[in-house]
Amino acid sequence: MSLARRLRGLTETGRARLLRRHPGLLRARRVESLPIHLGQRRIYVLPTGFGIGFGAMLLVMLLGALNYNNNAALLLTCLLGATCAQSMYGAFRALHGLRLEAVRAEHAEAGSALQVALHFSASRRARTAVCLRLGPTLAAFSLPIGAPTAVGMTLHAERRGWQALPALKLESTWPFGLFRAWSWLYPDARVLVYPAREAGGPAPPESSGTDSQHAPSHEQDQDYAGLRDYQPGDPPRRIAWKASARNDQLLLRLHEPPPAQSTWRLRWHDARGLPQEQRIMRLARWVHAAWRSGARWQLELPQQTLGPDRGDAHYHACMAALALLP
């Protein structure tokens, strides 16, 4: 009888109890709040392919020793078998008592790589050769006593918006690779993926509203702080033409402090005529450009208006708002 049939056969409470006691049994898609503690009920151990092969060889050795009545060989076989059986416990112990303390993710834009750091800690014992499988990627790590360890993984950020972490599989074949212990984790952690930025397109309507304060003469009065490469979306008037001519590429003047007076108004309806996603991508590019230039900007979306403000916090607030647009 298959496991699923048996589970169907159980009463509702019985099934709930079974799943509570063995959360890894079905890939119970119930997410778990952090920290996740790896108890004995959710760790499963089975021999690896090598373990099965090695076991078969031990059996042949056993039969041979018995057949030839060779007690020394029998003793050797018993010793090897007993040592290898410890692999089962070793793999189990590598996972038992492990804790996933926290999941931290960098911000990523849709279509790019998403860096996720998983913080594990071990209780009282050091762990060796624990492997973390997340989607197709695999990372091996060891944990010293007491000190939490961050394991970095790279995921693919697919679409803007909240992205849930896929199921994690922790496994270990310590110490001989004969048995594999594994456990599935479903951490309650999600990552906000920012919308991708448009590749090209018109420059942001940066100076709308406060254009008059933004005279070129004023700009030249400011402290000149350096040059950087021009990026699409940078205000053309800050291109250092003389320097660019010398360097075969467009360079941008940087000023310290950034031009406080200019406020960019980035409006949803300025990007009209585009499909929804394109519109969001364009605004994302504009917000990014405004952020990079150090200007103040205001983002006007259908339901809300952010800013005007400048700086990292404002940038993240704007990107989050864009990411969560319907």
């Binding site: 056993l62 009545n69 007690n71 003793l75 018993c78 010793l79 078998g81 007993a82 040592t83 059986a85």
Partner: peptide
Amino acid sequence: RLALAVPVALLAFVLIPR
């Protein structure tokens, strides 16, 4: 690990039917 296996191995040695 080898040393730990010795008592178990001896036990198995005695018990495995000849």
